[in-house]
Amino acid sequence: MFEVIGERINTSRKKVQAAVAERDNDYIIDDVKKQQEAGANFIDVNAGARIGHETEDMKWLIDTIQPMATAPLCLDSPDPAVLEMAFQMMEKTPMINSISLEKDRFDSMMPFLDGKECKIIALCMDDAGMPNSSDDIVKRAVKLVDELGKIKILPESVYIDPLVQPISTDNNKGVMVLDAVRDIKKEFPTVHITGGLSNISYGLPQRRIINRTFVSLMMDAGMDSAIIDPLDQAIMAAIQTADMLLGNDNFCGDFLKGVRAGTILS
């Protein structure tokens, strides 16, 4: 089953930042309800945009969201101290967003993750920068899975982000990440593949059709999760349809349910 990580509760979004600053419970609760109703499996919570307020903002968001959320939370921060505070508040096993191979981030995140029961998004980024080839992505993914295994985080709890890059800068960027995802899944069949998809269309017109087409290709390659806006009905319909065509929807039940609900339209 494809898992959607709802990206909307992020203080980099102007309306969310205003709601957090004003402690507007109703706005946040309404947004989370809509994400869940649209099919979000996790709710990403990022409070990093208000400099100097991240800890208190994250605590308020969790206090607001957790009592009404049916989906587990994805705790999103580069600061292990903020994540530690948030983790201690969790009632369900959370997802942590994220770790990478960049030395400063890796060295600070590994002690935090050690011994914790959680799912972890692992970015294929290191101190050399963005990956330049599919082999580069795969090598970084292998190292991430191996290093996380040393602290007893199993492959099935790891969500590799291969870092989608704009095809407008290099027409091989799409094929590069598709090839990498196939190889990662061959190496680690139980590892999940996730990430943001909209980078693929950066700098091009008609971005939504590019993103919808790309998610279908990525799902065929092995992607089984994405960090997206679940209120984008078109991309959610593309995901449900691709999931059906890939054999992950028994008797086409979820697809037919979406058609009857009016969320999947031709």
Rank of each mutant, 00 (worst) to 15 (best):
N41D: 15
S98G: 14
I264Q: 11
N25A: 10
T213I: 01
S108T: 15
D104R: 14
K103G: 08
R105A: 09
D179A: 10
R13W: 02
I28R: 08
I264K: 14
E156L: 09
L75R: 06
G222V: 00
I184T: 10
Y159C: 05
A234T: 13
F251E: 11
L144G: 00
K150Y: 10
C74N: 04
C74Y: 00
L163W: 00
D76F: 06
V259G: 11
K173V: 02
I43P: 01
G129V: 07
D24S: 03
M219N: 03
A141I: 04
K173T: 11
I99C: 09
A237Q: 14
D76Q: 03
A40F: 08
I193V: 12
K116L: 13
Y27L: 04
Q233S: 11
R23P: 01
D63V: 07
M223L: 12
A180P: 10
D220L: 09
V16E: 05
D104G: 15
S168C: 04
N25P: 01
L197G: 01
Y202T: 13
R212W: 01
G48C: 15
E102I: 06
V45D: 03
I153V: 14
R260H: 05
G115E: 06
I62K: 08
E7I: 13
A19C: 12
R212G: 03
L61S: 05
M219E: 05
M125W: 12
N46A: 13
A38S: 11
Q240S: 08
Q240I: 11
T70P: 04
K34C: 06
E91P: 00
E7Q: 11
A128T: 06
T213Y: 03
I43K: 02
E54I: 09
G222D: 01
R260K: 11
D63C: 10
V145N: 02
D232P: 02
E187D: 14
M244N: 12
K103I: 06
D220A: 09
R50F: 10
A237V: 11
P205W: 15
M236R: 11
T93A: 09
D220G: 01
T70R: 13
P72V: 09
D79W: 06
A38Q: 05
P205D: 12
M85Q: 12
F42G: 00
K34G: 06
M218Y: 02
A69I: 00
I153S: 10
S12P: 02
D126C: 04
C124V: 02
D126I: 01
F2Q: 04
L61H: 05
R140F: 03
E7D: 13
S198I: 13
G6D: 04
G195R: 07
N211M: 04
N41T: 13
R140D: 02
V177G: 12
F87G: 03
L148V: 10
A261T: 01
I227W: 01
N248V: 01
G258H: 01
G149Q: 04
L154E: 15
N171E: 14
N248A: 05
L154H: 14
S134N: 02
G222Y: 01
G222M: 01
A69W: 00
V181A: 10
Q35Y: 12
N248H: 07
S133K: 00
A40V: 07
D104P: 02
P166C: 12
K34E: 10
G253S: 13
I210K: 05
M219I: 05
V181H: 07
